[in-house]
Amino acid sequence: MRVYLTNLRKGWKGGVLMPFFVSLIVPIMAGIWPSMKDQMAAFSEILKNPIYQALLGQLGLMDMTTWQGMFYMYVGICMEWAIVFIAILIPARIVASEVDKNTLDVTLSYPIPRWRYLLEKFMVYATYNLLYPAFVIVLAVVSTNSIGETLDMTVLLHTMIGFWLWLFALGALSLLCGTLFLESNRALSASGALILIQYLMTRLGDLGDLSFLKDYTVFNYVSTGTIIQNGGIPMNELAVVVGVGVAALAAALYVFQKRELAY
């Protein structure tokens, strides 16, 4: 676990600060909620526009006149975008940045299997990603109590687990791109295309006729809307996201173990 522990310690600044800043959306929303509460009915009418509905997907179906509805809509949008950027930018560069800087040559001359080295580095990413749900949960509990509102804690917990699972599955796909392409620009382009296309397919799928597109995207499963409607994570959807993540991770580890490091 040397690689994992050392990189966990070395990467704490980015690993802690990023989730902290993203989760600040929660107290900000709680701060403005009392003054916005009365205007939310009118705002809900605006959101019934099909374009907004397509942009927001299932989040657009939330009852915006309640704290819970507004909380999940804004946290959902914010987290979705954070996840898109994090999953594209970080895992794809785990290997690629080392290839760019040429640091792998020394490291891999030591007796550590390549797959294990990569797994430990990915675990650092997965561990710090736990802070996103953790910070949001803590700040949601504190903020909700401070404004005298209520939130279903089970749904909150499951929603946050859903976000973490997205980070894991999409991150594993991005990692696979990194091991396939090795060089940063190409790896980032591939992971960006793979993840953004999925996001776009989800949004287009909300337009009705193209709903079949959603079936092929990670964003369609364990989504906030589904969890709220279901009262928790549907087990079949959990299996899909975990399955995609584990398969992509296994493929990335296999590719990195076997591939030639010609650069």
Binding site: N102, T103, D105, V106, S109
Partner: peptide, 9 residues
């Protein structure tokens, strides 16, 4: 033990 040509640490 290995020292690569274009050493990067």
């Amino acid at each position: 033990g290995y020292v690569p040509g274009d050493l990067a640490l």
